[in-house]
Design a protein around this nucleic acid. Structure first.
Ligand SMILES: [Mn+2]
Ligand SMILES: [Mn+2]
Ligand SMILES: [Zn+2]
Ligand SMILES: [Zn+2]
Lengths: 163, 163
DNA sequence: TGGAAAATGATAGTCATTATTATTAAAGGT
DNA sequence: ACCTTTAATAATAATGACTATCATTTTCCA
């Protein structure tokens, strides 16, 4: 899958139905790191800066590269480690598509799923309560207690259909 | 995730609502290999034997191990290669969950999705037309032409809830 | 401000998968 | 059956995403 330069800018931005209730808006990075039960380091602040105000749906590698610009000494293990912590405590969500590297996104917003263009990589976020309800129903029917789910739609976006 | 010995036996077996319309039932392996535009080799026949009548939701490694019993000389690259061919031409479906190795299943049956127990690894197949329709609707709403999707439900099965 | 405890960066390791390549086997004509 | 072309194979090295290890540096609070 080829990805264009803008693949990771949230398409959500100009789509009113997209969920974006960041309950941590305005909370300083330091506070969040303490809330995780971790020590406050410059690296973690820099990573959080990217995670919270940089592009959505980023890979660990991308975060590493962005932080590297201002701090060339950071190690990528540090990025991986901290993203893992954030993901374990549900501050970021891991989104895995196919065999590609994991992508993360700041999770302090409502649950949603993804619609991805397999041509250009564009990602649209959506949420559909009817589908959520049906999933719950299916799980119950089989005696399962549902914990989470992955719903990823793939297709070709309008733009790419024309081209 | 710990997996028990029986995780990969299709739970589907004794569940009447499960789709299992193998349109290639009775068609010899050789014929299918030729249909793929490939040469008929002993290895490919052996792999197809496992894929078509062995356990469902197998990994490449598992297929390799099973074939190895009767043919200790087979190389695992051969298994990967052939599974890839089969998957490219939609004879098997690749199912990827999290960061785990890819699982495959013979695809000549109706489309379905999976409900997985994250405790014991049990997999239940299901299909829900309402969800499929809603997905189609969502894609259209965003101008996408839908090509495929991944819907994986995770939870704890009844058995594991008791234990 | 001293020092235990945690975090870091460098680096090596793991695991699934893919590429390379010399050797072998299949297909199709003779 | 034999030859020839071409594809497939097995062994092996390489890749890519992550994870573990560990010696060194930071944090933080008593
Ligand atoms: Mn998202
Ligand atoms: Mn299945
Ligand atoms: Zn596109
Ligand atoms: Zn279970």
């Amino acid at each position: 899958m080829e990805l264009n330069n803008h693949s990771f800018l949230p398409v959500s931005e100009n789509q009113p139905h997209l969920p974006k209730n960041d309950q941590y808006k305005g909370v300083p990075h330091k506070k969040i790191i303490r809330e995780l039960g971790l020590k406050v380091t410059q690296q973690r602040i820099q990573i959080l800066e990217v995670v919270r105000s940089g592009p959505s749906h980023f890979t660990a590698q991308e975060v590493f590269e962005i932080v590297s610009e201002s701090n060339p000494d950071i190690g990528f293990a540090t990025v991986y480690r901290f993203l893992k912590k954030l993901s374990e405590q549900s501050f970021v969500t891991e989104v895995r598509m196919g065999g590609m590297p994991a992508r993360y996104e700041w999770a302090a917003k409502d649950h949603h799923d993804h619609l991805t263009c397999s041509r250009c990589g564009k990602i649209v976020e959506f949420e559909n309560q009817k589908i959520e309800d049906l999933q719950e129903k299916i799980a119950l029917r089989h005696g399962f207690k549902l914990t989470h789910h992955i719903l990823e739609l793939y297709g070709v976006c309008g733009e790419c259909q024309r081209a």
